[in-house]
Amino acid sequence: MRWRLAITAAALVVGSCAPVREKLPLGPADLVLVDKSDRTLVLMRAGRPLQTFTGLQFGASPQGHKQFEGDERTPEGRYTIDYRNPRSAYHLSLHISYPNAADRALAEAGGQSPGGEIFIHGQPNGFDGADRGARVPGDWTDGCIAVSNAQIEVLWSAIPDGTPIVIRP
C-alpha cells in the first residue's frame, strides 16, 4: 500500500512539472482585454471570450497609469496591437500603440517624455528554464506586459496586427 502512495505522489510531482500548454482559440481575436488588478488577459471575438490567460507580470510599479518614461508603470486605456517583433530581446513581442495623444500631453505637461516601446512579450531570451515554463519572478518589466513563453506563442497566433487592446486598472 505504501509503495502505491509513493508512486501516486511521484506521478503528481512529475505531472506538475510538465510545461503548461495553452489551448489555441478558435480563430483570431478582435479585442484584447487586460485587467491589471486581476492579472488577466482575455481574447475576445464578437463580444465573447475566446480564452483567458492568467499570471500577467507588469512594470515594477504596477499600480496606476503610465505617465512618463522610466516610471515603470504599465499604461491603462485603449490602444492597438500595431506590430510584432519576432527578434526582440524577449520571446516574441506584440507592440502596444502607447503613447496616444492624451499620454503625450500628460507627460509633456510635466516636462517629461511619455516613453514608449510597450509590448506584450514572453520571458527574456536566454532566461534559464523559460522553455519549461520558468519566469522571472515578480513584476519586472519597465511597463510591458510579460507572460510565459507558451502563452506568448498562443497570443502571437491569435492577435492580428490592428487588434484593439483595452488595459484596465
Rank of each mutant, 00 (worst) to 15 (best):
C17K: 09
L5N: 07
D128Q: 07
P25S: 09
G110Q: 13
D139S: 05
A46K: 15
G111V: 08
P124Q: 06
V42K: 09
P114C: 00
P114M: 02
R132D: 09
F127N: 05
T52L: 04
A6C: 04
D139V: 06
D161A: 00
F68N: 12
P49D: 11
G77E: 10
A102I: 00
D131M: 06
D142T: 14
A60P: 08
F68R: 15
A46H: 15
L26N: 13
W140G: 06
T74E: 02
E108F: 02
A10F: 06
E72V: 12
P75D: 05
A130F: 02
E153M: 05
R45K: 15
G77R: 10
L92C: 09
I165K: 14
I96E: 02
P49I: 11
G110P: 08
E22T: 06
D82R: 10
V166A: 14
R78I: 12
C144M: 03
V136A: 06
W156R: 03
Q51L: 15
W3K: 10
G162C: 03
R84C: 02
H121C: 00
A89F: 06
A9P: 12
K36E: 03
G47Y: 12
A29M: 10
A107N: 11
Q151I: 04
N149L: 04
S37A: 05
Q112M: 08
T8Y: 03
G162T: 11
F127R: 11
Y79S: 12
R132I: 05
Q63L: 13
E108V: 02
T141F: 06
Q51P: 13
Y98W: 12
A146K: 05
G64A: 13
R73Y: 00
A46L: 12
A146V: 07
V13Y: 03
N100R: 14
T80Q: 09
P19Q: 09
A134Y: 05
D142V: 04
A105E: 10
H95N: 14
V147M: 02
E76S: 08
A150L: 01
W3E: 07
P164S: 08
T40W: 05
T52V: 14
T52N: 01
L33E: 15
R2V: 09
W3M: 02
I118E: 07
D103P: 12
A107D: 11
I165H: 09
I81P: 07
V34Y: 07
V136G: 01
R87H: 14
L155Y: 10
P160F: 01
E117D: 10
P124F: 00
K66H: 12
I81H: 07
L12I: 08
M44D: 09
F68T: 11
N125H: 05
D139Y: 06
W140T: 09
I120Y: 00
P75W: 05
I159Y: 10
V136Y: 01
P164H: 01
R39M: 00
A101W: 10
K36F: 03
Q151M: 02
D35H: 14
S148V: 03
E153C: 06
D161S: 01
C17T: 13
R39S: 07
A130N: 12
E69R: 14
A107R: 06
A134I: 03
A134Q: 10
D35V: 07
Q57W: 07
G129H: 08
V166P: 15
